[in-house]
Amino acid sequence: MVLPSPEFTIYSIAYGSSLALLCLGLTLTYMTAKVPNFAHGTLAILGSAITLILIDRVYYQFKGEPLYYSIYIVAPLVAFLIVGLTALIQYLLILKPLAKRGVGVIGLMIATLAFDVILVNMLTMALYLAPSAYFGKLIGQSLKGFDAGISILGVVTTFSRIVMPFVAVALAITLHLFLTRTKFGIAMRASIENPSLARTLGIDVDKVYMVSWFLAGGLAGVSGSFLSFIIESVKPAAGSLVIVSIFAGSILGGLGSIYGALIGGFLVGFMEPMTTITLQNTLTALLGKAVIITQYQRLFSLLVVIVVLLLAPQGLTGLNYRGIIGRARRVGGVG
């Protein structure tokens, strides 16, 4: 077996971190609206597009200057707000009124798919038609050249790849504190578990759900903003493949726990490139000629979805760990 390089490992950690945030958001909206949001991948791409536009209009002028580094704060923040609002609009304008009219799960799912199609096509139109200051045209541009380089312990990598994991951990800890230490956060957990009881206690459940959707969208925006430096090019249609990995991570996490979503998302995002490149390098070494399989990388996500649903549909959080450990002990002959 040929192990991946440290550079590649750092890339995989960054990708895993961004997928963890995406899975967290998807799971949060799934727990409130009880419907998987098929537009979540495109919400991330919207965050990427916002970053692209910021660089095209403003930041290209500062390339190489110290001021340029503020892009890693400004872009995720702007993306957080705009994408958060977009998700909120999706909930308020589409899902909530439809659910109120008694539309079933299938109808709600197709409505999120409809929103996805609207969003992808609007974004495509905008990127084609919007004036561009630096690139000439916005569609399909790569931002790899705009990611500041950095070298740590002799490993050459980029700034976004180093920052992304820290941002993800910081956001996860903040969210944890919010959900366990603040009254509104506890109300959020309460409203998710039992909305009608929450209402009888005087909690405004609608407001709680609105905040959930805004947060979920905002996290997708942050994630997409960092992803824009990693992906080959910023194109709206990419969301339709990203969504498969988001579902894989969320299903692995059990679709019912935000902690499960974080772990599931990171595992899928980290393992997907790592497994693929390891397999590719190993096959190349074994066969003695160049084998390229990275174009099939996403199949790993599909495999995760299928294996988890066949073996443990409840995901990681649904597993009975005591039972498994107990069985392992018995097999081992201990106790």
Binding site: V35, P36, F38, V105, I106, M109, S240, L241, I243, V244, F247, A248, I251, Q295, Y296, R298, L299, S301, L302, V305, I306, L309, P313
Partner: peptide, 22 residues
């Protein structure tokens, strides 16, 4: 054997990856 939402996710994921990846 699972609920509709899981079925929808699996069918979309399978189709998307078979057509545009495989």
């Amino acid at each position: 054997r699972l609920r509709e939402d899981y079925l929808a996710i699996v069918l979309l994921a399978f189709s998307e990856l078979m057509v545009s990846v495989v």
